[in-house]
Simulated scan of single mutants.
Amino acid sequence: MAIISKLTIISILVISFALAFLAFYLISPLSKEQRKEQIGEIISQLINFVLFLWLAKILLNLQLFVQDPLAVLAYPSNSEAFYLATLFTGVLLFYKRRQKKITGVLLAHSFLQVFLAASFFYEFIQFVWRDNPFSFHYLIVFGVLLALFHLLQGRAKPQNQISIVLAVGAAGFFAINFMLPYLTLFGYIMEPWFLALLLAACFGLLIKDPQDEPHSETH
């Protein structure tokens, strides 16, 4: 049963992100080449995050891993591993941005669109298929954020668009924090301080050089 539960969660995540990438490819105002490039970069970073998640799980259970590696690898990752993997991913993205291997705002703008859509699909599946009543609150928040994101598309600079959506998202999540016993993100329990720190880091990454401005190109 535990294995089936894990496979079900993984399947929901894969379906959610697949639908999000499809929506991004169909809706994004970027050129076809840019859309493909951004999807490739986001997938690459998601793979890095999964690898960092496994590394974090090993580091947090290093003594047990030395004694019984399978016991650690078979055990689900917890919130602490998620925090550490997020930190590793953030450091990698910061390094790649400093090396000008990625365009910070363009990647952030593309990832935000994919993330919001994937989160919406994930919570929708959880609410409709798995009858999770808690998902309804997240479904409303992510639905509002998606609508706001697309409403601002073309009406605000990308960095301003990201900032507004993040600010509204922060308000929505902290409202949920008062209504539900805990906050979750893709099934991981999140502490409010982590979300606040993550939002602060995102705002910090938006402080950029003028040449970091993404260029939209519709065909």
Rank of each mutant, 00 (worst) to 15 (best):
F17D: 00
K96R: 15
I102R: 01
W129E: 05
A171D: 02
L62H: 10
L60H: 08
A108M: 15
I42L: 11
F82K: 02
P192Q: 06
F186T: 05
Q159S: 12
G143P: 10
F121N: 02
D212Q: 12
L145F: 06
S110R: 09
M179A: 13
E191Y: 06
L87V: 15
K157F: 02
A171F: 14
Y182R: 12
A81I: 07
H150R: 04
V165R: 01
A71P: 05
V141Q: 03
P133Q: 05
P214S: 05
Q63D: 13
F142Y: 13
S135Y: 02
A108K: 03
P210L: 05
W193C: 04
N177C: 02
M1L: 09
L199H: 07
I15C: 05
A170M: 14
L64R: 11
L148C: 14
E33V: 10
F136I: 06
S28Q: 08
I27D: 03
F65K: 00
V66Y: 13
F127D: 03
A18E: 00
G90D: 03
I102S: 03
Q63K: 15
E191P: 00
G169K: 11
A2N: 15
N48L: 14
G143C: 01
L46Q: 03
W193V: 13
S44M: 08
V50Y: 13
V168N: 06
P29H: 02
Q113S: 12
L62D: 10
G172L: 03
E123C: 00
G187Q: 03
Q99F: 09
K32E: 15
F127H: 12
S216E: 12
L30S: 08
A171V: 14
I9T: 13
E191A: 12
W54Q: 11
A156I: 08
A18V: 05
S110K: 08
S44R: 07
I207M: 14
G204V: 04
N160Q: 13
I164R: 00
E213S: 10
I10D: 10
D68Y: 07
A18T: 08
G143I: 00
I9M: 13
A167E: 06
A81M: 11
A81G: 12
L93R: 03
I176W: 01
Y188D: 00
S5G: 09
G154S: 11
N61V: 05
R35T: 01
I58H: 09
F17S: 02
E41K: 15
L7N: 06
L146R: 04
L87Y: 13
V72G: 07
R97I: 15
Y25S: 04
N78K: 09
A18P: 01
V91W: 12
A85Q: 04
Y188F: 15
A171Y: 03
F194Q: 04
S28Y: 09
S16C: 13
F24L: 04
Y138M: 05
K32R: 14
V50K: 13
H219Q: 14
Q113F: 08
V168Y: 01
L46M: 11
L53K: 11
I39A: 07
I9R: 12
E37T: 11
L30G: 00
L139A: 04
L46A: 07
A74P: 02
A117P: 02
L112H: 09
P158K: 11
R130Y: 15
N48K: 04
L166T: 03
K6T: 04
I207Y: 15
L62K: 09
L73A: 12
P210E: 08
L107R: 10
F134C: 00
F65N: 03
H137K: 09
I47T: 10
A23D: 01
S16I: 08
I58R: 05
